[in-house]
């Protein structure tokens, strides 16, 4: 029973397959007084509640301010205006924030994919001195929370004259313990036989990794990329600590500070919010299964 339902549903949500609800057909028929499943009565309002803030955010970003400041405020704009976005461009450094964020996230994703693949493969396949110790050290860092690290890291970066630079934002995201662990788990699941032919032909480990193993790792690499993208794009506490120069603000700190300055200019603020969340929102809608895989593989850490 489970097999058939999982199959049908996996087209939509391969990461989280569904099992048919636990009741046979007769009781289903008995309950069928409504022309639709009663579950809609529960789920539809909840879904609306969850979607509401995003929908309103988009509405308000296109709204003239008179629509917001009347009583009761309008939900759908009377006229669609780009004033919010225009004001955002004129009165904030949103383009600078966006550029900084894109640079940091791009480097973070690229570097994580490369370094975590290499390290994951090394830990899974190669025997060398210090392997267990260094892997345990990496696992150990997962348990250490950011608040214990932030003061010494701040001092360290200050001594290296790295505060207030894009490097300060990038370096902590070059490689992540989660990524190394994720990739190692994947490489352990690849049959060794696949690599043996290559080894006999005298191919280097790097070539084997690149040509034979990595092409198989695409789902894990996507999960790693999504994790790194969301994490580096949304990071707040470290940028708040390491950056005070407004030319180096990311979207997150830029927006958080801007909010204090333009308290009631809602269409402006919501336009900023749209810019900050839209790339991830679109990414989620397009690559939902990879996002869901990332969410559930966070459990690997535990």
């Amino acid at each position: 029973m489970i097999a058939t339902t999982t199959e049908n549903d996996s087209a939509e949500h391969p990461a989280v397959p569904t099992a048919e609800a636990d009741r046979p057909a007769q009781s289903e028929a008995r309950r069928r007084r409504l022309p639709f499943s009663p579950w809609h009565l529960l789920l539809a309002p909840i879904a609306v509640l969850f979607a509401f803030p995003f929908v309103q955010m988009i509405m308000v970003s296109f709204m003239p301010s008179r629509d917001i400041n009347r009583l009761p405020p309008r939900f759908i704009p009377t006229t669609v205006t780009l004033d919010g976005y225009r004001g955002l461009l004129e009165r904030s450094d949103v383009l600078i924030w966006l550029t900084n964020t894109v640079i940091v996230s791009t480097v973070a994703v690229g570097s994580n994919v490369v370094l975590c693949s290499l390290a994951g493969y090394g830990f899974a396949r190669l025997r060398f001195r210090g392997r267990n110790v260094s892997f345990l050290a990496i696992l150990g860092t997962i348990m250490i929370p950011i608040q214990l690290l932030m003061i010494p890291t701040y001092v360290m970066f200050a001594r290296l004259h790295l505060l207030n630079s894009l490097a300060a934002l990038i370096v902590p995201w070059l490689a992540t313990a989660f990524g190394v662990f994720l990739m190692r788990q994947f490489f352990l699941s690849v049959p060794r036989e696949l690599e043996e032919a290559g080894l006999l032909d005298g191919a280097s480990r790097l070539r084997i990794l690149w040509h034979i193993v990595l092409p198989l790792a695409r789902p894990s690499l996507m999960t790693l990329a999504v994790f790194t993208l969301v994490g580096s794009w949304n990071d707040l506490i470290w940028p708040v600590i390491a950056i005070s120069d407004s030319n180096l603000f990311t979207l997150q700190i830029g927006l958080a500070n801007f909010q204090g300055v333009r308290r009631t200019e809602w269409s402006l603020l919501m336009a900023g919010n749209v810019v900050a969340v839209l790339p991830l929102l679109v990414g989620f809608l397009v690559a939902q299964k990879h996002f869901l895989a990332t969410m559930s593989s966070t459990g690997l850490k535990g």
Partner: peptide, 30 residues
């Protein structure tokens, strides 16, 4: 509740999962 096959289930799931991408700055402003 989400573990069943009814119409619009994909839509319901998407609506409930999508706030996952909202950062603290975005959530705070909302």
């Amino acid at each position: 509740a989400l573990n069943r096959r009814i119409r619009f289930m994909g839509l319901y799931r998407t609506a409930i999962f999508v706030p996952y991408v909202a950062s603290a700055a975005v959530t705070g402003l909302l």
